[in-house]
Write a protein that binds this DNA or RNA. Structure first.
Lengths: 191, 191
DNA sequence: CCGGAATTATTTGATGCCAAACGAGAGGCC
DNA sequence: GGCCTCTCGTTTGGCATCAAATAATTCCGG
């Protein structure tokens, strides 16, 4: 056992032994745990294969991707699509702008809003990068048939939908009226 | 369309339109994209429901979890299991140690190695926290039957295995002998 | 045993990340 | 026009994150 990476089977065996005394939702636990294992492994691989030669981070790529697919868009919508907070997007957009891949323009009718779009350089990058990226997506999914991929995607989509539809209500319920403790980090009030 | 969150179906439609001219692995792309959407959504929910009252981050919880399941363990092995780099673990362990949830001990036979374990306080926390955490895992998986959860877990496990078995070789192949550009960030050489 | 090679964990630097606070602008009302 | 409120994007603070450099220790050949 010592000095070797544990397989998922070994881990699940250890969990079984450790948690024998608990009543638990075993299948759901395995699903959630593996979502994160897979996400981390896939992200790691894509960053170190397709993205690294272009010095892009995962999130930077996702933002470029969103702009490529949707064209010019407001920041709140880009953040939403990319699955990051608007504060994070501000930083990412700054980085991408400094590399001339993304352009920032203020909304013609509302001075508060900002529009993001790809520069021609950004478009060109995506056209070259995307096929390589997609090839690595195919590589990580090699063990699965096309149909199994769709099944997988459907299961995951159902989880996302569940959280979009019922997540906020659930969190409210759990609180039962009490206030949620503020995060340890985050900006402090001035007074 | 404006001012509303786009559904996954709409996104996939836009992708279809934008990428009509590319040859692409559609199913694999959908699977990979949804892995990340789901991972982010699930993590967000768990942090804001089960973990927040205990002021734990996702990664902090995962590290406690690994120690709870496996007992005392060496740091490299904890990092491996938790899916983070050993450098990151150093920071997390420091945080958890400062909160008296984790203890650090040096290896009796090898002064380079460090052993981590839960303190009694950490054990107690996990015993109280785990049921709540598992309940939220069950909540996010509500739309799926137990069997569908297992199917999902199996598909994801296959992807992780693919990367563990062939990922490194694949990245070497892609490089074709060339050196991978260093990351933009990271420690600089002294000279 | 001595000195270099190998193997640990830690430090470092740049970036990512969130939530809450903030400031700038828009819109309604009187 | 002067306010008050609402709604944007940005800033802030505290961590998390990685890979490479470095420090600390062990191992091995002579």
């Amino acid at each position: 056992m010592a000095g070797r990476r544990r397989s998922i089977a070994e881990t699940e065996q250890a969990v079984q032994e450790r948690l024998g005394g608990f009543e638990l939702q075993r299948e759901q636990m395995a699903a959630v745990a593996n979502i994160h294992r897979a996400a981390a492994a896939v992200r790691q691989h894509l960053e170190n294969s397709a993205l690294r030669p272009h010095d892009l981070t995962w999130t930077g790529f996702v933002v470029l991707w969103v702009l490529w697919i949707w064209g010019e868009a407001e920041t709140w919508s880009v953040a939403e699509e990319a699955g990051i907070s608007k504060g994070t997007l501000t930083g990412i957009a700054r980085t991408l702008e400094s590399r001339h891949l993304v352009a920032r323009a203020s909304h013609p009718e509302d001075g508060r809003r900002v529009l993001l779009s790809l520069t021609p350089e950004g478009e060109e990058l995506m056209e070259r990068l995307f096929p390589a990226f997609n090839a690595e997506e195919a590589f990580v999914a090699t063990p699965l048939s096309a149909e199994e991929c769709l099944r997988l995607a459907n299961g995951l989509r159902a989880i996302v939908a569940q959280l979009e539809e019922h997540g906020e209500e659930r969190r409210r319920q759990l609180l039962g009226g009490r206030d949620l403790a503020p995060r340890r980090s985050g900006r402090r009030s001035r007074q």
